[in-house]
Amino acid sequence: MPWDEGLVNSLVYDAPDPKEGRVLGYAQAVNEALEIALKQDPSVFVFGQGVDDPTAMFGVTKDLQDKFGEKRVFDSPLSEEGMMGMSVGAAMNGLRPVFMHNRPDFILLAFNQLVTHAAKMHYMDNGLTKVPMVVWAAIGRGWGSGAQHSQAIQGLLIGVPGLKIVMPSTPYDAKGLMLSAILDNNPVLVFEHRWLMKKDGIVPEDFYRVPLGKGIYRRRGKDVTIVGASHALELGLQAANKLAAEGIDVEVIDLRTIKPLDEEIIHESLKKTGRLVVVDTGWSMGGVCAEIGCLAAEKWFDSLKAPVRRIGLPDIPHPAGYTLEQFFYPDVKRISQTIRELVHQ
């Protein structure tokens, strides 16, 4: 087994109880969402570099070309900006593109089309033109992916009006949020995380949607609020469960969508706990952590009993080597330690 596969396989998640419903893997849940969308709506098409190759984007696009044909599910030229623009034009004219990328890093080549065109067209045309498109990518981490294959770029996009950004953390959400993203009439970015791809969860077989812009409590508690999304939230939840044994009662909010941001749920929790830890897979500076931290300082200062803590990435490029990575990425231990400091302050 290759080293990267082994690493993802070695990750341990809480196993779902099959009595609660059908158990499905994360990548399969996304695959199911795409299949349902393709089946329901002939205007949906799925494309990107490698969607039809044997690895099928972590399994997310597996068998889709066989089922729906080469016209609707196809490999693309390595033309990130051109294909992003093509998606914008297709979306403006009746189609619903789903443009897949193995890594968010590749989307950086297409910022002109994403930021300056996709996000703006509806506004610039005074509401006449809609741009219903999904841009999907899986954040990498580990096995030497390094500075150019590990970046989590949501922080660069959170300030762009007109975009929506979805970051699921469970197989259930991955399916329901993907269906919501495809049915939304705006450009929606869906950032998955490579390390969640083999996580199992309870996933209903039928069509369902998880609403965009609404967070959810993953754990109720009274001492500290952890807020975040995607794999960072998973680590936060693991830390919270661990700290329960020490008598620290942590509330965990999964944002699911970081733009539009569910401010209400954060405020509601903060009123109770008075302590806020923001976790993110991206850089702390100027990103999701910074934005939520600023909101707390600006709007909810009276609720705060202690300073807001950010747990994102340091202001450093992603290293490639295994040892350096251990210093670079936050883990359960570091999140737990931050929470202990906050509570015992």
């Binding site: 051109g82 034009g89 297709a90 403006m92 089309q113 065109h117």
Partner: peptide, 21 residues
């Protein structure tokens, strides 16, 4: 588009939509 060449891929997508539909 006021970005030089910005509209060229978009128009290409419009043509793709015509072909597909």
């Amino acid at each position: 588009s006021a970005i030089v060449a910005g509209v060229v891929p978009i128009a290409t997508g419009a043509a793709f939509a015509a072909q597909m539909q």
